[in-house]
Amino acid sequence: MRKRESAVKNAVVKYGKERKNLLPILQEVKQIKNYLSRSDISEIGAEMGLSSAHVYGVASFYHFINLTEQGQNIIWVCKTISCYMKGSNDIMMALEERLKIKIGETTSDGKFTLLQTNCIGWCHKGPAMLVNDEPYTDLTPENVVQIIDSYYKK
């Protein structure tokens, strides 16, 4: 719990209090704490001398800064046209069936959150998805289940 509480302070010390360091600080705190809570936002503001409103405004602007609790692993399935044409809907259905959740939900064991995202830059090897930072390409309804299972084994 101490680690969680000091995450903000540590990040601000690491990057510096100037406003230009806000995005790296938000990312670092998110990385450690899984998401940014209301109190994290206020604390970052207080530490950096910025209003909570400014910090919230910035944090909520970016897709990958989570403001609600997420699963341990986040799956981002690309929904943009090239992946869509190669069957990203089938991938989504296979994931929903394997994880027993719908888009936007988190598994009951807290292991996965299933989300969609815009183009992730693997259009020639679609359908594609990110699991956390790791890209997976040339997905099929079969191999995507194997990928998920490999995370359960980790």
């Binding site: 943009t80 046209i81 090239s82 815009n118 183009c119 830059g121 693997w122 259009c123 020639h124």
Partner: peptide, 11 residues
Amino acid sequence: DEGEPGTFKDR
């Protein structure tokens, strides 16, 4: 910050 749909050259 390559984000245009269908672009992946910069990566």
